[in-house]
Design a protein around this nucleic acid. Sequence first.
DNA 1: TTGTAAGCGTTATCAA
DNA 2: TTGATAACGCTTACAA
Lengths: 336, 336
Amino acid sequence: MNLRDLARKLNLSTATVSRALSRPEIVAPATRERVLQAVRRSGYHMNGIARSLRTQSTRTIGVVVSDIRNSFSSSIVKAVEDVARVNGYTVLICNADETGQNEEAALQLFIERKVSGVIHCSAGANLELLRVLQNKSIPLIDLDRRSGLENVDTVVLDNHLGAEIATRHLIGLGHRRIAMISGPMHLSNARSRVEGFRKTLRAAGIPVAREYLEFGDFRQRSGEEAAQKLLFLRHPPTAVFVANNEMMAGALLAIRQQKRLKVPRNLSLIGFDDARWAQFADPPLTVVSQPTEAMGEKAAELLLQRIQGETAAKTIVFKPTLVVRRSTAAPERSRT
Amino acid sequence: MNLRDLARKLNLSTATVSRALSRPEIVAPATRERVLQAVRRSGYHMNGIARSLRTQSTRTIGVVVSDIRNSFSSSIVKAVEDVARVNGYTVLICNADETGQNEEAALQLFIERKVSGVIHCSAGANLELLRVLQNKSIPLIDLDRRSGLENVDTVVLDNHLGAEIATRHLIGLGHRRIAMISGPMHLSNARSRVEGFRKTLRAAGIPVAREYLEFGDFRQRSGEEAAQKLLFLRHPPTAVFVANNEMMAGALLAIRQQKRLKVPRNLSLIGFDDARWAQFADPPLTVVSQPTEAMGEKAAELLLQRIQGETAAKTIVFKPTLVVRRSTAAPERSRT
DNA sequence: TTGTAAGCGTTATCAA
DNA sequence: TTGATAACGCTTACAA
């Protein structure tokens, strides 16, 4: 059942039926009703593919998230979908699973599927492919992680500040042996967090020991391994700043294996991103919180503006806040 | 840049170029190479919309999840996407956010977008719309929750058994005042869990008090409210079985507000679905675990088979397991 | 207000 | 092995 069949049944032209459905106001009320009734009765459904081909518009926005199982991504997806929905757009979601290759596959897909715009959290995809999108003038938003592309709308957290807040909190508590479990340095957010960490330590006159800086890949497993190394150091740190929530889960796992080790008594722990479980954890986690949903919303809004013709590339930077719970405390006297 | 342009540039017909790209083996090696090179050079990308229109196939599978922020959904999405990818399919995800209306909107969208098949976790959508899909012979899988449709592929957990396991665990510990926070009764999984709970209590000769059965909507907030009611009962329960992880988060919030109340000393708590955070919670949560990823994979595989012509509707039932952690214990002597 | 007909970018049929 | 051409189902000039 397509428009033609419907038109034939009603003794109308396909043009009229099409108009009755897409722009009802320009068709005579009587015929409009006739068409609408026939649609209901016959169970006709528009072929969106055909329409998209004809109008050269899919009203779809492609989203690549870095890791769909990370609650950060869920929040982003939810926020984006919500604003897309009210604007009559739909969302095509792909999971990069923290690998640039998957991200590239997703972008490739978006090109073929002719999405109206793309929101993407870089997992390290090649810039060339992103340039292709730009050349095809597919609006693009960098979210959470800067791709390195010039002249692109960007929605990020002030990661440097986030790391600074975390580090200062630890220093303020009296820690001097402070370690960090960072994300991979090819990601902008990881870089900023490391930088904020380093600068803050230096500003406080605390040397940044090489062995106190571990690099993971923002996934649980790497957090576990990094924590393990840190714990077995000759002079283990008294506090660890973990740069994302997945790695924090891993770190918790590693720490739990050392029966003797109690957080925060023997080790303070501060995380990045206030996942819902952070407050339920044992102990409740002190974290740097980011306004995840707001970031997702903003990205979607920016993208929609771009799609509607806005040309100036904006960069929006959100501010993190410190949420003090019970995983951080002053270091033990005995160990200092 | 489209096929025609490319063909012109190469002095070939569009037909040949098309073939060189879609079925390279039926075109002369020399021309094939020529085409492939031109594609690389010119940065040509297939128009998937046009192809879909022509071939009447989108190779897209639509997924409606009940609540994208629930980690259960993330796992499903990840699993489905993974098997879709290796089979050359892509995934269109929609979030029902536990409301039938959103679910219906998603299904409507899937019809228009001509998805090859649908996996859906019912949030209570009208059966009529699902029948429309069936009439259009769009393969459909019920996942986690039975829609009530007859003759449909189904992938579910043995929820009755899950509730039985949970309840028996509590009874075995010595509890007799056992409450349950259930999901909404219009969802099949909620119904089965309540049924399993009731039957197990009855079998143990424990009366099922009306005020010990609270109904939420599978979201955090409702879990919090339900727990609150339970806690303020004249004779509060000594154990609570919470029917999903979101409501468990809410219950934890409510319980935490009663400073005096310690889990499991004064109250045992058992959850449903072993979300990653359950093991990090304070105390680590005893839960009924379901093989979430396996369920998602199976659903995707079943759907793919259906798309490829399989006609028999299968029902796959996965088995839950008990994961005992530290949120359950024998009831206090003094309160019994 | 409605109808005619072209065209969106592919693939598939048939003929060369 | 390749080419000419007709679809796929819609929207939109333009004409009536």
